[in-house]
Each structure stands twice: as structure tokens, then as C-alpha cells.
Design a protein around this nucleic acid. Structure first.
Lengths: 135, 135
DNA sequence: GACAATTACTTGAGTCGTCACATATCATCC
DNA sequence: GGATGATATGTGACGACTCAAGTAATTGTC
């Protein structure tokens, strides 16, 4: 029954709306946090915008626009790729590392609060199931 | 460890981005589909915008803006509440019912495809876990 | 039964992302 | 070594949403 699949997808959308609303920390939107976490995981080389687009499920265009304000705020910088003049690498600045580091605590607290009704096992289970969706 | 909660939340965001991208059917965005499914569930009385906002985790303002193009397309209509002049009720038009009815098949197929790696039991489990998040 | 507080919705301005298109560079193949 | 196509990114126009503020109607209170 495909209708059940729709129900599940709608539940996912609802949960997402809830978390996106709750997870704004220190002047960073949830979308910005996702981007910064990705960059943090990419230390120290940084990530190419195209890779970020794939990881975050954005268009390359969306990555350009997302990086721009973060660059202006001095949280992110971009370096040209020495071997490929088309490409660049986005990295956290040292100020950016601090910002992300400071955000993790509060973000973790809010995330834990959102998942408070789930046991540790259920949380892990949820994560496993979610990871099956995007390939 | 709150970091694990963040991981789960990030997995949820990733899954959501995947599904929102995949679930566009017949000229309707995923956000529009969510709204129309809510209205379909509210047949025949319709729903007040405020209720829709709560159900869909939008602001009332967002509901106003979401309804507008659907009204223009003749998919949704709004009636004044006879008992409360501030309020209105949004309903599917009969054309709208047809549109939603026609969308369910393809939407269900795509939803099922996204969940193809999960068994029926896992899908139900996922849904239960997700529903715990938004209260 | 006036007046303050609340509720229902709308609107202006701004953010975040898309799509379609443009630009620049790289890779290939003849 | 120039044409051809793919790849990496940026831009204009627009869509979908938010927040803050505004309007209008309703409720509660004394």
C-alpha cells in the first residue's frame, strides 16, 4: 500500500520542520549549522562547493549563496585550488572553528531535547533507518 | 553524548532534503502536497488556516502565502466562517479533489521508492519514531 | 457596555533556496 | 593544437518561508 509510504514521508517532513525550527543556535540557522558541521568534518583541507552540494543535498548555486554570508562574517574562507582554476576549497577560519565549537554544546542539548522521548537504542535505530533513505 | 543526537538530527535533515526533492508531482511541490493532503483529511468542512499552520509547522503567514497560488489555480477555496468574522475555512474545490486524487498514485510510488530499502515493519517503526519527535 | 487583552489573519521586507543560464577552465580526440 | 564536451562555479529572476507589524473581530472583566 503506497499510502503508508506517504504517511511515513509526511511524518518525516513534520519532524524535520520541528527540528529546523528548534535548532537555531548563536545566530546560526539550522542550514548554516549543517554546512559548518560538514566543513568541520572536512578539516583541514576543506571541501569543494560541489562536494558540499552533494553532501548537503543542495544545488551548487545554493552552496554559493550559503557560503557568501558566512565568508562575510569571517567564519568561512575560500581558497583557489592550485591544480584546477575552476575549483575552490571552502574552509573554516580559526574564528569559524571557534564558532562551531561553541555551537556544538547548545545544539547538542536542543537535539537531545527533541529526541528526549526516544531511548538511546531507538535514537540509533532511527538514525540507521534514516540513513537508508538517502542511498 | 549529545553529539549522537546531532548526528541523528543531521541524518533526518539529509533524508528530508532527499524526499522533498523527489516528491514533486504534477506541478505540485512537496510543500503544496503536504497542504493538500491536510485539506483532504479535513474534508468536508475544511480547515482554518491557523489549524493548518499548527499541523504543517508553518507560521500563519506562511499558510496565507501557500494558499494564495492554490486559490488562483482553483484547487483551493476559502469560505468565511459564519460564526467568526475573523476566521475562514480552506477547502479543496472539486477540481482540487481530483488533483489530489491524481497525485496520490505517483506520490505513493515515489515515496515507496525512497523507502525501498526498508521492510514494511521498518517503515512503520520509522514512522512511529518520527512521530515521537514532534510531540 | 466600554476597554483591554486575545485571536485570526494579512502584509512588507528580508532570507534561503531553486532553476535556467552564463562563464571559465579542463579533458579528449582527431 | 583547435573543436567539443564535460565540470566547477556564479548570477538574475523568482518561489517559499520567516519575522515584525498591522488590521479586524472577539472575549473577558469590571
Amino acid at each position: 500500500m503506497p499510502t503508508e509510504a506517504i504517511e511515513t514521508i509526511l511524518a518525516l517532513a513534520h519532524a524535520h520542520a520541528t527540528i529546523a525550527r528548534a535548532l537555531e543556535v548563536q545566530g546560526l540557522s539550522f542550514a548554516e549549522l549543517r554546512l559548518l558541521f560538514a566543513l568541520r568534518a572536512a578539516e583541514p583541507e576543506g571541501r569543494r562547493p560541489t562536494e558540499l552540494a552533494r553532501e548537503l543535498q543542495l544545488t551548487p548555486s545554493g552552496v554559493t549563496r550559503a557560503l557568501l554570508p558566512l565568508e562575510k562574517r569571517g567564519i568561512v574562507l575560500r581558497e583557489k585550488d592550485p591544480g584546477d582554476a575552476r575549483a575552490s576549497h571552502a574552509k573554516l577560519t580559526s574564528a569559524g572553528s571557534t564558532v562551531v565549537g561553541d555551537a556544538i554544546g547548545p545544539a547538542g542539548e536542543r537535539a537531545a531535547k527533541l529526541l528526549r522521548r526516544l531511548s538511546i537504542g531507538q535514537t540509533k535505530q532511527l538514525q540507521r533507518l534514516l540513513e537508508e533513505i538517502g542511498r
